Amino acid sequence: KVMEIKLIKGPKGLGFSIAGGVGNQHIPGDNSIYVTKIIEGGAAHKDGRLQIGDKILAVNSVGLEDVMHEDAVAALKNTYDVVYLKVAKP
């Protein structure tokens, strides 16, 4: 199931950690970017929809399929206060 989640960045950013990407696979044979941690009190935690194990398909208009881990981190960092995440639920 794919959904779009709109998050408003807090003082600590979006409030979640990711793993995965080309050269840094979270699941062997899979280059996808996965949510590995939700920080308590952060934007994602308060919103409640993003969960550990969700796959991040895109940030705003930037696709995160088959990208390097660093590029995924940069895509999440290089955002304004309002961030749209395209997410696939497991």
Rank of each mutant, 00 (worst) to 15 (best):
V59H: 00
L50R: 00
P90D: 09
E40T: 14
M3E: 05
P11A: 12
L85F: 06
L57T: 12
V59A: 09
K37S: 15
G20R: 03
L50H: 00
S61C: 13
G20M: 02
M68C: 11
K12F: 06
S17N: 15
N78K: 14
Y80D: 07
V83R: 00
F16D: 00
T36W: 14
A74T: 11
L85C: 03
M3L: 09
L7I: 15
G23D: 07
K1G: 05
P11W: 06
D30E: 13
K89G: 08
K86S: 12
V62K: 13
M3S: 07
N31D: 15
G10V: 05
V83W: 03
N24W: 07
G21P: 02
I33Q: 03
A43P: 15
D71M: 09
T79L: 08
A58W: 08
V59M: 06
L50C: 02
A88K: 13
S17Y: 11
H69K: 15
V2F: 15
A43G: 06
E65C: 12
I5L: 09
Y34S: 03
P11L: 10
T36A: 12
P90T: 08
I18K: 00
D54Y: 10
H45S: 15
L50G: 00
Y80G: 06
G42V: 01
K12G: 08
I33F: 12
D71H: 10
K9T: 07
G42I: 00
A72W: 03
V73W: 07
G63M: 14
S61N: 12
K9E: 04
N78I: 07
A88F: 14
I39N: 14
A74H: 13
L57V: 13
Y80S: 07
K6A: 07
Y34I: 14
V67Q: 08
G13I: 03
L76A: 02
V2I: 15
V82Q: 12
K86C: 06
D81A: 11
E40M: 05
G63P: 11
V35R: 00
N60Y: 03
A88H: 13
H26R: 12
Y34T: 05
V59L: 07
V2P: 03
V87C: 08
A72S: 03
G63F: 11
A75P: 02
A58Y: 10
K1A: 04
G42S: 13
I39K: 15
V22Y: 06
R49L: 10
G48K: 15
P28S: 07
L57R: 05
E65H: 13
V62M: 13
H45P: 01
L14C: 04
D30C: 09
G53W: 04
K55C: 12
E65S: 14
V2N: 15
K89A: 09
K86A: 07
S32W: 04
G13W: 03
D81M: 11
N24Y: 08
D81V: 06
T79R: 06
L64V: 13
L14D: 00
G21V: 02
I8R: 10
L76I: 13
I27H: 11
V82S: 14
G15S: 02
G42E: 12
G10A: 11
N78Q: 12
N31V: 04
G63V: 12
I56W: 00
K77V: 08
I56F: 02
K55D: 00
P90F: 07
G13A: 04
D66E: 15
M68Q: 13
Q51S: 14
R49C: 10
E4N: 15
V35S: 01
D66V: 05
L57Y: 06
G29T: 09
I56N: 01
V87M: 04
T79W: 04
K9P: 08
A74E: 10
H45M: 15
A58V: 10
L85Y: 00
D47M: 03
I18Y: 11
G48A: 14
V83H: 04
N60D: 08
L14Y: 06
K12H: 05
I8Y: 15
A75K: 10
Y80R: 10
D30T: 06
D54G: 01
D66Y: 10
H69Y: 10
K55V: 12
N31H: 12
F16T: 01
E4R: 08
L7T: 01
G29F: 07
R49Q: 15
S61V: 05
G10W: 04
